[in-house]
């Protein structure tokens, strides 16, 4: 596999990651959302492995395996169990004004391209052009958290953001030091557990996972 081809595969995977990010933005079914998240993790992990091969950084293989086990197997499994336990796996969320959200998403892609253009010009890494996509993935994850009301969607948005950050690290500097990466992975895992526990509590308190309900918690109500 030549470097050229590897770079092409890399940018192709970047495009697919971006596509999954958009698909998650548009997806209304909680179930489908988890599937999309799984796919995104899978592409990310393949991409990391390829970058590791291209840049000859062996620790990237480890982070690739880490991603695979955490984001493709473990977290989706937890989420899966969670929504089945809470009996919300068939819920369909209403997405308000989806085309408007989509245009904001496109604008975010352009904006992140604008932001990363100076970095891209300075960088010499072969994967530098995917930095814009990575940043866009982060922002779309955030956008997803803003536009959705369902708590499960919120956490998936959060995890998608983390995917984007990880992707950015891989494409800009060939990954973070392994220690940092392990730490982040642990954080994400723990965050997911905590979220899971909170879901149960929110669900038992409000009988719904609609985060708008939490507005009732504020004082004087």
């Amino acid at each position: 596999m030549s470097l050229q081809v590897a770079a092409q595969i890399n940018s192709f995977l970047a495009a697919i990651v971006l596509l999954t990010a958009f698909a998650m933005l548009m997806q209304r079914r909680v179930y489908g959302l988890i599937h999309l998240f799984t796919w995104q993790g899978l592409f990310l992990s393949i991409n990391t492995a390829i970058v590791g091969y291209v840049a000859n950084r062996h620790h990237l293989y480890i982070s690739s395996i880490l991603t695979l086990s955490l984001k493709v197997i473990l977290l989706p499994y937890i989420l899966h169990m969670l929504i089945i336990k809470l009996k919300i796996h068939k819920e369909v969320e209403t997405v308000v004004n989806s085309s408007f959200t989509m245009f904001i998403g496109i604008a975010l892609v352009i904006f992140s391209y604008y932001l990363t253009a100076p970095v891209t010009e300075l960088s010499t890494s072969i994967t530098r052009s995917t930095l814009a996509v990575a940043l866009a993935t982060v922002m779309i994850g955030l956008l997803m958290m803003i536009t959705r009301r369902h708590a499960v969607t919120q956490i998936i948005g959060f995890l998608a953001m983390e995917n984007g950050l990880f992707f950015a690290a891989t494409s800009a500097t060939y990954g973070m030091p392994l220690v940092v990466e392990l730490g982040v992975a642990l954080d994400v895992l723990i965050a997911a557990f905590i979220f899971g526990i909170f879901f149960f509590h929110i669900h038992t308190t409000f009988d719904s996972l609609d985060v708008d309900q939490m507005a009732r918690l504020k004082e004087g109500d």
Partner: peptide
């Protein structure tokens, strides 16, 4: 439309 636009964006960003 989104697909087509992403195609155009990735032409400029990634290629």
């Amino acid at each position: 439309f989104l697909m087509a636009t992403l195609g155009m964006l990735s032409f400029f960003i990634l290629e």
